[in-house]
Amino acid sequence: MSSANPIDKLSILIADDSETVRRLLASLLAALGAGRVFIANNGSEALTTFFRYCPDIIITDAAMAPIDGYELVDTVRTHPESPDPNVPVIMLSALSGDAHEARAEQMGVSILLSKPLVPEAFYKAISEALASAERRAWLEEAALKIADPSPLPDDKSPMPASRSRMLH
């Protein structure tokens, strides 16, 4: 049986340069019953927290300085020492348009969520981000197998081999 409130098992990192947004997100996550919430004022602080605590989900703004949300996600996904390259990332932004969406997708954002924030959409985004991260991990696993199709001993299966960097 699943937990009555599975979110109470999650640790979540918020990165936003607006104090009001940080307070709002923290309040909503408290209402959701999130287990642990980390708060960062910008992308730089968020990366420090991510590498130290490896949260289960990242919720980030797009436009921040000195490191913006796109660079944050890119580092999380591609840094060789990233503790979880497949961590679900929700990008929350008032920006719109194809360029923003394309860049977010290119960097590996799991879910784009538009401001203004609506509680129901926020709740669903957390669920969808987890599902998206699962698909991402699975596709990467398959891609790695295609790139390196050497079979395991007695392996007659086309399934991808394990890569420890993807799972913990």
Binding site: K9, A137, L167
Partner: peptide, 12 residues
């Protein structure tokens, strides 16, 4: 496939 959901939220 490996389940992130199971890993993060527990079995079930």
């Amino acid at each position: 496939p490996p389940s992130i959901v199971t890993r993060k939220l527990g079995p079930g």
